[in-house]
Amino acid sequence: MLAFEMERPASLKEAFEILSRSGPDTAVKAGGTDLLVWMKKNLVHPELIVDLSLIEELKGISFDPSGGLVIGALATVNEVAEHPQVGKFYPALMDAALSHSDFVMRNKATVVGNLCSAVPSGDMIAPCCVYEGVMHLVGPAGRRKVPVMEFITGPRKNVLQKGEIVKSVELPLPKGHSAGCYLKLGRRNALDLAQVGVACVITDGPGEREYRLSFGAVTPRPVRAKVAEDLLRGVVSPDESLLDKVAEAAMACVDPITDVRASREYRISMVGELTKKALRKCLERF
Protein backbone atom coordinates (compact mmCIF):
# COMPACT_ATOMS: atom_id res chain seq x y z
CA MET A 1 0.00 0.00 0.00
CA LEU A 2 1.41 3.41 -0.93
CA ALA A 3 1.84 6.06 1.73
CA PHE A 4 -0.84 8.62 2.55
CA GLU A 5 -1.60 11.22 5.19
CA MET A 6 -4.43 10.70 7.61
CA GLU A 7 -6.69 13.03 9.50
CA ARG A 8 -9.07 11.93 12.23
CA PRO A 9 -11.49 14.75 12.92
CA ALA A 10 -13.46 14.58 16.17
CA SER A 11 -16.45 16.55 14.87
CA LEU A 12 -18.26 17.26 11.64
CA LYS A 13 -17.11 20.86 11.85
CA GLU A 14 -13.51 19.77 12.03
CA ALA A 15 -14.09 17.34 9.16
CA PHE A 16 -15.48 20.11 6.95
CA GLU A 17 -12.46 22.27 7.69
CA ILE A 18 -10.11 19.48 6.71
CA LEU A 19 -12.05 18.66 3.58
CA SER A 20 -12.27 22.30 2.54
CA ARG A 21 -8.49 22.57 2.35
CA SER A 22 -7.79 19.08 1.05
CA GLY A 23 -6.68 18.26 -2.47
CA PRO A 24 -8.49 16.21 -5.10
CA ASP A 25 -6.92 12.89 -4.05
CA THR A 26 -8.74 12.76 -0.77
CA ALA A 27 -10.71 9.75 0.40
CA VAL A 28 -13.22 9.74 3.21
CA LYS A 29 -13.57 6.58 5.21
CA ALA A 30 -15.95 5.15 7.76
CA GLY A 31 -15.31 1.40 8.20
CA GLY A 32 -12.80 1.39 5.38
CA THR A 33 -13.34 -2.21 4.35
CA ASP A 34 -13.70 -1.30 0.67
CA LEU A 35 -11.17 1.50 0.64
CA LEU A 36 -8.38 -0.53 2.21
CA VAL A 37 -8.85 -3.37 -0.27
CA TRP A 38 -8.86 -1.00 -3.24
CA MET A 39 -5.71 0.67 -1.94
CA LYS A 40 -3.99 -2.63 -1.34
CA LYS A 41 -4.80 -3.65 -4.90
CA ASN A 42 -3.42 -0.30 -6.10
CA LEU A 43 -6.73 0.63 -7.69
CA VAL A 44 -6.79 3.94 -5.82
CA HIS A 45 -3.95 5.98 -4.34
CA PRO A 46 -5.37 8.71 -2.11
CA GLU A 47 -2.93 11.23 -0.71
CA LEU A 48 -5.12 11.98 2.26
CA ILE A 49 -7.61 9.85 4.11
CA VAL A 50 -10.12 11.55 6.35
CA ASP A 51 -11.22 8.99 8.89
CA LEU A 52 -14.67 9.78 10.22
CA SER A 53 -14.69 7.06 12.82
CA LEU A 54 -14.23 9.38 15.82
CA ILE A 55 -17.14 11.68 15.02
CA GLU A 56 -19.86 11.18 17.64
CA GLU A 57 -22.55 12.83 15.49
CA LEU A 58 -22.22 10.04 12.95
CA LYS A 59 -22.64 7.17 15.37
CA GLY A 60 -25.66 5.17 16.40
CA ILE A 61 -29.01 4.01 15.14
CA SER A 62 -32.28 5.57 16.22
CA PHE A 63 -35.84 4.55 15.69
CA ASP A 64 -38.92 6.69 15.91
CA PRO A 65 -42.27 5.14 14.96
CA SER A 66 -43.41 8.36 13.33
CA GLY A 67 -40.28 8.94 11.31
CA GLY A 68 -38.55 5.61 10.94
CA LEU A 69 -35.07 4.24 11.26
CA VAL A 70 -32.05 6.51 11.12
CA ILE A 71 -28.77 4.73 10.60
CA GLY A 72 -25.74 6.87 11.37
CA ALA A 73 -22.83 6.84 8.97
CA LEU A 74 -20.68 4.91 11.42
CA ALA A 75 -23.24 2.26 12.34
CA THR A 76 -21.76 -1.10 11.44
CA VAL A 77 -23.65 -3.76 9.58
CA ASN A 78 -23.72 -5.90 12.74
CA GLU A 79 -25.13 -3.02 14.81
CA VAL A 80 -27.94 -2.74 12.31
CA ALA A 81 -28.50 -6.50 12.22
CA GLU A 82 -28.66 -6.63 16.01
CA HIS A 83 -31.01 -3.65 16.41
CA PRO A 84 -34.35 -4.95 17.70
CA GLN A 85 -36.47 -2.63 15.57
CA VAL A 86 -34.63 -3.62 12.40
CA GLY A 87 -35.61 -7.25 12.83
CA LYS A 88 -39.17 -6.23 13.58
CA PHE A 89 -39.89 -3.55 10.98
CA TYR A 90 -37.13 -3.90 8.38
CA PRO A 91 -36.65 -7.63 7.80
CA ALA A 92 -35.28 -7.14 4.27
CA LEU A 93 -32.54 -4.95 5.69
CA MET A 94 -31.94 -7.47 8.45
CA ASP A 95 -31.60 -10.32 5.91
CA ALA A 96 -29.28 -8.23 3.79
CA ALA A 97 -27.15 -7.29 6.77
CA LEU A 98 -26.78 -10.94 7.74
CA SER A 99 -25.89 -11.88 4.17
CA HIS A 100 -23.18 -9.21 3.95
CA SER A 101 -19.60 -10.61 3.93
CA ASP A 102 -19.07 -12.48 7.19
CA PHE A 103 -19.62 -11.97 10.89
CA VAL A 104 -16.20 -10.42 11.51
CA MET A 105 -16.26 -7.99 8.59
CA ARG A 106 -19.72 -6.85 9.65
CA ASN A 107 -18.14 -5.50 12.84
CA LYS A 108 -16.22 -3.03 10.67
CA ALA A 109 -18.19 -2.46 7.50
CA THR A 110 -20.90 0.20 7.75
CA VAL A 111 -24.29 0.34 6.11
CA VAL A 112 -23.79 3.88 4.89
CA GLY A 113 -20.31 3.01 3.64
CA ASN A 114 -21.80 0.22 1.58
CA LEU A 115 -24.17 2.73 -0.02
CA CYS A 116 -21.41 5.29 -0.58
CA SER A 117 -19.11 2.75 -2.21
CA ALA A 118 -21.92 2.30 -4.73
CA VAL A 119 -20.63 -1.05 -5.92
CA PRO A 120 -23.63 -2.55 -7.73
CA SER A 121 -23.41 -5.75 -5.70
CA GLY A 122 -23.53 -3.83 -2.40
CA ASP A 123 -25.98 -5.72 -0.23
CA MET A 124 -27.40 -2.63 1.47
CA ILE A 125 -28.52 -0.94 -1.72
CA ALA A 126 -31.56 -3.00 -2.71
CA PRO A 127 -33.11 -3.13 0.79
CA CYS A 128 -32.60 0.60 1.24
CA CYS A 129 -34.40 1.10 -2.07
CA VAL A 130 -37.42 -0.98 -1.13
CA TYR A 131 -37.65 0.86 2.18
CA GLU A 132 -37.39 4.10 0.19
CA GLY A 133 -34.34 5.23 2.10
CA VAL A 134 -33.14 8.78 2.02
CA MET A 135 -29.53 9.82 2.48
CA HIS A 136 -28.89 12.80 4.76
CA LEU A 137 -25.96 14.74 3.40
CA VAL A 138 -24.15 17.47 5.27
CA GLY A 139 -21.63 19.85 3.87
CA PRO A 140 -20.18 23.28 4.32
CA ALA A 141 -23.09 24.63 2.26
CA GLY A 142 -25.68 23.02 4.48
CA ARG A 143 -27.81 19.91 4.46
CA ARG A 144 -29.70 18.08 1.78
CA LYS A 145 -31.66 14.89 1.46
CA VAL A 146 -31.24 12.55 -1.49
CA PRO A 147 -33.15 9.30 -2.00
CA VAL A 148 -30.86 6.26 -2.19
CA MET A 149 -32.21 5.64 -5.69
CA GLU A 150 -30.76 8.96 -6.80
CA PHE A 151 -27.73 9.01 -4.54
CA ILE A 152 -25.96 6.29 -6.51
CA THR A 153 -25.34 7.40 -10.06
CA GLY A 154 -23.32 4.49 -11.41
CA PRO A 155 -20.79 1.86 -10.44
CA ARG A 156 -18.67 3.43 -7.68
CA LYS A 157 -20.26 6.79 -8.32
CA ASN A 158 -22.49 8.92 -6.11
CA VAL A 159 -23.76 12.50 -5.92
CA LEU A 160 -21.50 13.58 -3.06
CA GLN A 161 -19.91 16.93 -3.75
CA LYS A 162 -16.45 17.82 -2.59
CA GLY A 163 -16.52 18.40 1.14
CA GLU A 164 -19.88 16.72 1.59
CA ILE A 165 -20.40 13.83 3.98
CA VAL A 166 -23.29 11.41 4.43
CA LYS A 167 -24.55 11.79 7.97
CA SER A 168 -27.09 9.01 7.92
CA VAL A 169 -29.58 7.08 5.92
CA GLU A 170 -33.19 7.25 6.97
CA LEU A 171 -35.66 4.49 6.22
CA PRO A 172 -39.28 5.55 6.76
CA LEU A 173 -41.42 3.06 8.64
CA PRO A 174 -43.47 1.01 6.17
CA LYS A 175 -47.09 2.02 6.51
CA GLY A 176 -49.38 -0.56 8.08
CA HIS A 177 -48.62 -4.25 8.37
CA SER A 178 -45.61 -5.25 6.30
CA ALA A 179 -43.23 -8.05 5.53
CA GLY A 180 -39.93 -8.11 3.71
CA CYS A 181 -36.98 -10.19 2.76
CA TYR A 182 -33.67 -10.08 0.93
CA LEU A 183 -32.44 -13.06 -1.00
CA LYS A 184 -28.85 -13.19 -2.09
CA LEU A 185 -27.18 -15.61 -4.42
CA GLY A 186 -23.43 -16.03 -4.26
CA ARG A 187 -21.00 -18.70 -5.30
CA ARG A 188 -20.94 -20.13 -1.80
CA ASN A 189 -22.87 -19.77 1.44
CA ALA A 190 -20.81 -17.09 3.19
CA LEU A 191 -18.42 -14.27 2.50
CA ASP A 192 -19.22 -13.60 -1.13
CA LEU A 193 -20.33 -10.73 -3.24
CA ALA A 194 -23.84 -11.08 -4.58
CA GLN A 195 -24.25 -12.51 -8.05
CA VAL A 196 -27.81 -11.32 -7.66
CA GLY A 197 -29.67 -9.82 -4.72
CA VAL A 198 -33.41 -9.35 -4.54
CA ALA A 199 -35.14 -7.21 -1.93
CA CYS A 200 -38.87 -7.37 -1.52
CA VAL A 201 -41.32 -5.59 0.76
CA ILE A 202 -45.07 -6.00 1.01
CA THR A 203 -47.17 -3.44 2.86
CA ASP A 204 -50.83 -3.20 3.70
CA GLY A 205 -50.92 0.53 4.06
CA PRO A 206 -54.01 2.69 4.29
CA GLY A 207 -54.88 1.74 0.74
CA GLU A 208 -54.44 -1.49 -1.15
CA ARG A 209 -51.63 -4.01 -0.78
CA GLU A 210 -48.38 -2.74 -2.22
CA TYR A 211 -45.28 -4.55 -3.33
CA ARG A 212 -41.78 -3.17 -3.75
CA LEU A 213 -38.94 -4.95 -5.50
CA SER A 214 -35.34 -3.96 -5.99
CA PHE A 215 -32.28 -5.82 -7.25
CA GLY A 216 -28.59 -5.86 -6.50
CA ALA A 217 -25.64 -6.60 -8.77
CA VAL A 218 -27.67 -6.50 -11.96
CA THR A 219 -27.90 -2.80 -12.78
CA PRO A 220 -25.35 0.00 -12.75
CA ARG A 221 -27.68 2.19 -10.68
CA PRO A 222 -30.31 1.26 -8.09
CA VAL A 223 -33.51 0.03 -9.61
CA ARG A 224 -37.10 -0.58 -8.60
CA ALA A 225 -39.16 -3.03 -10.64
CA LYS A 226 -42.04 -0.65 -11.25
CA VAL A 227 -43.82 -2.74 -13.87
CA ALA A 228 -43.61 -5.83 -11.72
CA GLU A 229 -44.78 -3.89 -8.68
CA ASP A 230 -47.76 -2.56 -10.64
CA LEU A 231 -48.71 -6.07 -11.73
CA LEU A 232 -48.93 -7.06 -8.09
CA ARG A 233 -50.56 -3.98 -6.65
CA GLY A 234 -53.71 -4.85 -4.72
CA VAL A 235 -53.28 -8.60 -5.17
CA VAL A 236 -53.50 -10.30 -1.79
CA SER A 237 -52.18 -13.69 -2.76
CA PRO A 238 -50.66 -13.82 -6.23
CA ASP A 239 -50.95 -17.16 -8.03
CA GLU A 240 -48.12 -18.89 -9.88
CA SER A 241 -49.07 -17.48 -13.27
CA LEU A 242 -48.98 -13.97 -11.90
CA LEU A 243 -45.65 -14.70 -10.24
CA ASP A 244 -44.32 -15.83 -13.61
CA LYS A 245 -45.45 -12.57 -15.18
CA VAL A 246 -43.90 -10.62 -12.36
CA ALA A 247 -40.65 -12.52 -12.81
CA GLU A 248 -40.68 -11.66 -16.51
CA ALA A 249 -41.21 -8.01 -15.70
CA ALA A 250 -38.42 -8.14 -13.14
CA MET A 251 -36.04 -9.67 -15.65
CA ALA A 252 -36.94 -6.97 -18.14
CA CYS A 253 -35.81 -4.17 -15.87
CA VAL A 254 -32.27 -5.37 -15.22
CA ASP A 255 -29.18 -5.10 -17.37
CA PRO A 256 -26.42 -7.18 -15.82
CA ILE A 257 -22.89 -7.69 -17.05
CA THR A 258 -20.88 -10.86 -17.40
CA ASP A 259 -17.94 -11.23 -15.09
CA VAL A 260 -16.10 -14.11 -13.50
CA ARG A 261 -18.76 -14.29 -10.77
CA ALA A 262 -21.65 -14.99 -13.14
CA SER A 263 -22.77 -14.53 -16.70
CA ARG A 264 -25.30 -11.93 -17.73
CA GLU A 265 -27.70 -14.71 -18.76
CA TYR A 266 -27.53 -16.50 -15.42
CA ARG A 267 -28.01 -13.26 -13.55
CA ILE A 268 -31.11 -12.42 -15.58
CA SER A 269 -32.56 -15.87 -14.93
CA MET A 270 -31.79 -15.54 -11.24
CA VAL A 271 -33.57 -12.20 -11.02
CA GLY A 272 -36.69 -14.03 -12.15
CA GLU A 273 -36.23 -17.04 -9.90
CA LEU A 274 -35.28 -15.07 -6.81
CA THR A 275 -38.09 -12.58 -7.34
CA LYS A 276 -40.59 -15.43 -7.14
CA LYS A 277 -38.83 -16.90 -4.12
CA ALA A 278 -38.69 -13.53 -2.40
CA LEU A 279 -42.37 -12.88 -2.99
CA ARG A 280 -43.31 -16.30 -1.64
CA LYS A 281 -41.10 -15.79 1.39
CA CYS A 282 -42.57 -12.35 2.09
CA LEU A 283 -46.09 -13.70 1.82
CA GLU A 284 -45.11 -16.48 4.22
CA ARG A 285 -43.73 -13.95 6.65
CA PHE A 286 -46.67 -11.62 6.24
Binding site: N189, A190, L193, V260
Partner: peptide
Protein backbone atom coordinates in the same frame (compact mmCIF):
# COMPACT_ATOMS: atom_id res chain seq x y z
CA UNK B 1 -16.09 -29.99 -7.11
CA UNK B 2 -18.59 -27.27 -6.36
CA UNK B 3 -16.84 -23.96 -6.72
CA UNK B 4 -13.19 -23.94 -7.65
CA UNK B 5 -11.65 -22.98 -10.95
CA UNK B 6 -9.06 -20.55 -12.25
CA UNK B 7 -10.37 -18.53 -15.16
CA UNK B 8 -8.64 -16.26 -17.61
CA UNK B 9 -9.78 -13.66 -20.05
CA UNK B 10 -8.92 -13.89 -23.73
CA UNK B 11 -5.58 -12.20 -23.07
CA UNK B 12 -4.57 -14.70 -20.42
CA UNK B 13 -5.21 -12.40 -17.47
CA UNK B 14 -6.31 -14.32 -14.41
CA UNK B 15 -9.85 -13.39 -13.43
CA UNK B 16 -9.66 -15.19 -10.09
CA UNK B 17 -6.50 -13.70 -8.57
CA UNK B 18 -7.61 -13.52 -4.93
CA UNK B 19 -9.94 -15.03 -2.35
CA UNK B 20 -12.58 -12.53 -3.47
CA UNK B 21 -12.97 -14.47 -6.69
CA UNK B 22 -11.19 -17.74 -6.07
CA UNK B 23 -13.68 -19.23 -3.69
CA UNK B 24 -12.94 -22.08 -1.31
CA UNK B 25 -15.39 -23.69 1.09
CA UNK B 26 -16.23 -21.77 4.24
CA UNK B 27 -17.62 -23.45 7.34
CA UNK B 28 -21.09 -22.81 5.90
CA UNK B 29 -20.36 -24.88 2.80
Amino acid sequence: GLMEGMYYDEKGRLLTPDFTDYKIATIKD
